[in-house]
Nucleic acid binder design. Sequence first.
DNA 1: AAGTTAGGTGACCAAAAGGTCACATGTCAA
DNA 2: TTGACATGTGACCTTTTGGTCACCTAACTT
Lengths: 106, 106
Amino acid sequence: MNDDDRVFKALADPTRRFLLDLLFARDGRTLTELESELEMTRFGVAKHLKVLEEAELVVARRSGREKLHFLNPVPIRLIHDRWIDKYTERHVTALVDLKNALEDET
Amino acid sequence: MNDDDRVFKALADPTRRFLLDLLFARDGRTLTELESELEMTRFGVAKHLKVLEEAELVVARRSGREKLHFLNPVPIRLIHDRWIDKYTERHVTALVDLKNALEDET
DNA sequence: AAGTTAGGTGACCAAAAGGTCACATGTCAA
DNA sequence: TTGACATGTGACCTTTTGGTCACCTAACTT
């Protein structure tokens, strides 16, 4: 399994995406803290975090008996750059911004 | 299955990512043309293209008995925007550009 | 019209992924 | 040092996914 595989497989699961959402909102949380936000046993959450770490979407730092988790945006940016070149980026960002603006009006 | 799910599950498979790479390099290809680039039966490729279409990562247009496939970058950009805000984007693009520059030197 | 070409469908099987549990290690606090 | 707390591991089972095949429809060609 190469780096790509790890990143995309990690993102394929809704629970793992929700974990990234939680860390995007606030970094540096422990396993137990994250577990409390989910309808799942600690073991399940730990397994998901391991997958995210192996994909380097999450980096973790030990502090005593706790382990703090942080979101790493680099792999996300690399996905973007794989299929959106600098020229296309201008168009697609404009399109997305327009879409968001229209949705805000309703 | 919601839109997110469809996009991320679609991206989870290496064959489907390779199909996106092919369409990124050159748009408007038929199933048969794409199949010739892969070590897989037509049925397998057709199944993968269906998944990509349902995720709207690929849009297709019929022309007679042929079906032309095009890459749609919008869902990719939305992934980016989900976990990279405007502020972080400046840092992470700088980091990625630096990394690419360093790799080019070797 | 007949043959060929492009594509679509549903059944089927093997492999992989998601979740839980029993059990284990290391760390803090009284 | 004893007990509680935070996390890690490997086995196990169920569900999902990837790929092939037999069979089908629609469109171009001569």
